[in-house]
Design a protein around this nucleic acid. Structure first.
Lengths: 133, 133, 133, 133
DNA sequence: GTGGTCTAGACCACC
DNA sequence: GTGGTCTAGACCACA
């Protein structure tokens, strides 16, 4: 996994995990990859993974069963979707509108690019963390 | 001008100046507000403004005429648009597509929200810098 | 390290670091001296070192691994050589030709001076940074 | 005349005037272009030209005959040549050697480039200040 | 007047 | 520990 420059790594990890839960790749109720293992897989410091997991615990997307590890909350996917939708509508969408307005782009012009995007993503070879595939 | 918490002030200043150039509020070839003056206006340290201006000089959007001040490059607006478009196509648009895909939103559903956005932006004229003009 | 009067300190630092990379003294991929440490070593303000390092990051000669420090880019030496060669061919060489032409000096006359220079430089090993090693 | 970025304009003007004297374009004993006229011609502030002329007066390359203007010293060309040669041998040549050494360039490789340079300069269309030609 | 550089010292997020 | 940002204040060369 290659990280973006401008965003903290732990947030990007939390985001990737979130997407795995959202897409059902990490199903509700299942035990998730341990901090240590994920750290090795992503080639980051375990502290960084820990911080990502902490964030997700605060959001009650994953749950700590003491002594047993971390598990995807039963309503994990629902929670994530709510959080993301909120952020999208309040922050990302206005910014996006601002940008296309400044750049003289029309929403219609993006339709075929979006079709292209969906086609490219049908056989997703680069799915966030991809380990057990 | 009130600054966002999560983004460095100097980047926000550079962004605001860029938009002033992009929208033609600061026309090509004209002298721009001096470091000291803008620092006073925005109530930040001159070094912070300097840093923003340094960034724009690196992008060749503004030009230093020694001893006389900084001026909007003749092709300043073009340069900014190119830089922004690049970033939009490479980073923001893919993220946007990814988001609406994950959230099960259709591009078409955003049309009327965009119309609303454009209507709202016609009046307020929140023109980044210089409120007293 | 003693600095020249007429050139900004941060540029001299960037130049010295560049030469350490170019000559292989700081090998590709290795961690470089931290801002604080180099500031102490050179007896300058950390901000000054930071500025030098910033410049080298812009040139993609060194790379920031967040939280871990700055590292020599894998192709750092190549990048520096390209940058320097460009500057040499575009600026320094024409100036040099102009000078020897104005001063009625022939290139051939400089041959033995160059041999002398190379001989002198074999021993002293004035290796820019780090004298205690 | 277009000025280099990294060197003060007044020094570049002084250099250009020096070369006009050295090459005999401005002959010994002759009155030189007034501050005002040169400033207009070069599109710079008269103060800047003044500063350049001050420097040359200190070097006794040009001489102020009160009320009559500035004149090229009778030994002006000789003085300039001495100053330049000194600087060349002490500063520029060592730097030049250092550079070609770092860039793995051999003096011999520059021979044909120098021939090219001399050929290009035979019909000098861009001769420093060029006004009366 | 202009921008450029440097210092001192502080706080912060991140790893 | 690391680098990144910001402030305050100073000095300077340049035009």
């Amino acid at each position: 996994m290659d990280f973006k420059e401008n965003e903290p790594i732990y947030l990007q990890i939390a985001g990737a995990v979130s997407e795995n839960i959202l897409t059902g790749k990490w199903p509700a109720g299942e035990k998730i990859t341990s901090i240590r293992d994920l750290a090795i897989e992503l080639e980051v410091n375990p502290n960084t993974v820990n911080r990502a997991y902490e964030l997700l615990q605060n959001q009650e997307v994953i749950i700590n069963k003491r002594g047993m590890g971390l598990f995807v909350a039963l309503d994990g996917a629902v929670k994530i979707k709510a959080i993301r939708k909120e952020r999208f509508m309040q922050q990302e969408l206005p910014e996006f509108f601002r940008n296309i307005h400044l750049l003289d782009i029309e929403l219609n012009d993006l339709q075929h690019l979006y079709q292209q995007f969906k086609k490219d993503n049908r056989k997703p070879k680069t799915d966030t963390t991809n380990e057990n595939e």
